[in-house]
C-alpha cells in the first residue's frame, strides 16, 4: 500500500453492508468522490449497526468484500485513494 491509499477496516466481527437497509441503493460506488462526512458502509454485529466513514477526502477505489459478507475484526473492507 502506498501513501496515497487508505484502507478502511472493520472495527468489529460482523456482517458487511454496502447499503443502509436491505433493498436500498449502495451508500457509495467505486470511483465515487467522498468526504469525511459520507458513510461508506455499515457493519452489523449482534444487532448493532456501526457506520463507517473515511477520515480523509478521497475516491473509492475498490471494495475488498461483497455486500453481506461476514467480516472479521480489523479486516480490510474498502480501498480509498486519498486526495
Amino acid at each position: 500500500m502506498d501513501e496515497k491509499n487508505h484502507i478502511i477496516t472493520s472495527p468489529v466481527m460482523g456482517t458487511f453492508y454496502r447499503s443502509s437497509a436491505p433493498g436500498k441503493a449502495a451508500l457509495v460506488e467505486e470511483g465515487q468522490a467522498i468526504t469525511p462526512s459520507d458513510i461508506v458502509c455499515m457493519i452489523e454485529s449482534m444487532k448493532i449497526f456501526t457506520e463507517l466513514r473515511c477520515e480523509h477526502p478521497g475516491i473509492v477505489k475498490r471494495f475488498l468484500v461483497e455486500n453481506e459478507d461476514p467480516v472479521m475484526k480489523n479486516q480490510a473492507l474498502i480501498e480509498i485513494e486519498i486526495h
Binding site: 468489529v12 466481527m13 460482523g14 454485529s45 448493532i48
Partner: peptide, 14 residues
C-alpha cells in the same frame, strides 16, 4: 452479554 464494558459495551463476538 457478549459485549465489552471497557469499550462502551461494543459487541464482542468470538
Amino acid at each position: 452479554n457478549a459485549s465489552d464494558p471497557n469499550d462502551n459495551f461494543m459487541p464482542s463476538p468470538g
